[in-house]
Lab assay of single mutants.
Amino acid sequence: MAMNGTITTWFKDKGFGFIKDENGDNRYFHVIKVANPDLIKKDAAVTFEPTTNNKGLSAYAVKVVPL
């Protein structure tokens, strides 16, 4: 089920960042999981599918909501 969130941290040079989800949890995401990576920036609103990996909470099918 899709969730909403906000990008809180973005490491462009490393290709990953973190999203604060609607429950207040931080989720890892990688640029290859983003549909529109050219719009990635700190504080951008996103929708995504929540999941977990071996390191904890993460996100896939991430879409940055255009302003």
Rank of each mutant, 00 (worst) to 15 (best):
M1W: 09
M1T: 15
A2I: 15
A2Q: 13
M3H: 06
M3L: 12
M3P: 03
N4H: 15
N4D: 05
N4C: 10
G5H: 00
G5W: 02
G5I: 02
T9N: 11
F11K: 05
F11V: 06
F11P: 01
K12S: 10
K12R: 09
K12M: 07
K12T: 07
D13T: 11
D13H: 12
K14V: 06
K14E: 07
K14F: 11
G15K: 07
F16I: 05
F16H: 05
F16P: 02
F16C: 05
F16S: 03
F16W: 12
G17A: 01
G17I: 02
F18I: 09
F18G: 02
I19V: 03
I19C: 02
I19P: 00
K20D: 04
K20I: 10
D21W: 02
D21Y: 01
D21L: 03
E22Y: 06
N23I: 06
N23P: 02
G24I: 01
G24V: 01
N26D: 11
R27W: 10
R27F: 07
R27L: 03
H30S: 13
V31I: 13
V31C: 08
V31N: 05
V31E: 08
I32H: 15
K33L: 12
V34D: 04
A35S: 12
N36W: 05
N36T: 08
N36S: 05
P37W: 05
D38Q: 13
D38N: 11
L39V: 07
K41D: 06
K42P: 08
K42S: 06
K42M: 09
D43K: 08
D43C: 13
D43W: 15
A44I: 07
A44E: 05
A44V: 08
A45T: 11
A45Y: 12
A45L: 14
A45N: 12
A45V: 12
A45F: 12
V46Y: 02
V46T: 02
T47A: 05
T47F: 07
T47W: 08
F48R: 00
E49M: 15
E49F: 15
P50S: 04
P50D: 02
P50M: 04
T51M: 13
T52I: 11
T52G: 11
T52K: 13
N54I: 12
N54M: 12
N54D: 12
N54S: 14
K55E: 07
K55R: 13
K55G: 10
K55W: 15
G56M: 10
L57W: 03
L57V: 03
L57P: 07
L57H: 06
S58F: 08
A59Y: 02
A59V: 08
A59F: 02
A59T: 07
Y60V: 15
Y60P: 01
Y60E: 15
Y60S: 14
A61Q: 10
V62F: 02
V62D: 02
V62A: 01
K63D: 05
K63V: 14
K63Q: 12
K63R: 12
V64C: 05
V64H: 02
V64E: 02
V65P: 03
V65C: 10
V65K: 11
P66I: 13
P66W: 10
L67S: 14
L67E: 13
